[in-house]
Amino acid sequence: MTEPFARPTRPAADPVAPPRAPRAFAAETVQALPPQIAAEFDVEPDLDLVTPPPARRMSLLTRVALWAAGLLVSLGLGLAAEALIRDLFARYAWLGWLGSAALAVLVLGIVVLAIREAVALRRLRSLDRLRARATQALVTDKQAEGRAILSELSALYAGRPDLAAARTELDKDRAGLFDGAEMVRLGERRLMAPLDARAKILIAASARRVALVTAVSPRALVDIAFVAYESIRLGGTIATLYGARPGFFGTFRLIGAILAHLAVTGGLVLTDGLMEQLIGQGVAAKVSARLGEGVVNGLMTVRVGIAAMRVVRPLPFATLGQPLVRDFIPELANVAKAADPR
């Protein structure tokens, strides 16, 4: 038989500090804080509120195999270069020196390029992180978090003359804010709004080009190539616009992210009506088969552009609406009219 027993469900309560009594001090003895109040009085952030899902990592085996393959390739390249330089020296000494110099320049170039790529990748990732934090701050409303996000945004766009006016406005407004969520919204209104407008113009221009090329191109293969080229270019331009400046590998990563995004949303951008798309395509197809294809390809480009915006925008769409595919339909209709002078 077990004896009946009871245990407190909670450990003995921590000694609660007694509430502090009111006090007044002479104004001179105070360390006045700047209008932005020191973060030390901010409440500790709740970490368990919104934790982003862990990024997908390659398995250990794959990484080891890749690493070994990389080592082998590097060894091979090194051997080849060494053999080449040795051969050059064997012919003429000056040729050997020339080869060595060229090799040094090549290595230096590769190192610099690698650093730039690494930085670009980092920047892309930091945009992702910033967006995750901003999404979290919108929920938790923590002041310190909001302020950190705003300073990061300011730092991100510090070198951008086109956003100078917006940044000054932002700095003026943020002094009177107390809520993290409010700061994120302010950042979005001040900094994202002008960028969004320009991104929309870029997307519309790309879509128009794609629609026109598709409508007039003789072969399907040409359209496909052009759509692919235009999409990659659009993704890169939008990323640069929002401050990512992706390099070579960065572009790959970006395209991967955009494709993943398109796959998740099934090619449709969320919150967009399926009906409008079908109707838009139906009407276009009625006009002529090629024009219809042009509009379809244009819409595809629009979707790529919107996906790119969602991937690289450092803040979530909170106060400003995300652009919808239907916003671009009038643009494409204009192209259809222009290309079809009947």
Binding site: P22, V30, A38, E40
Partner: peptide, 28 residues
């Protein structure tokens, strides 16, 4: 405005301003 003050080894968050005439605190 807001500020902090160190008092008895703890930092207290304070507000800085001019109280209205006749307001009382701890005998003052």
């Amino acid at each position: 405005r807001e500020g902090t003050i160190a008092e008895f080894g703890e930092r207290l968050p304070t507000i800085i301003g001019t109280p209205m005439a006749g307001e009382k605190l701890a005998g003052t």
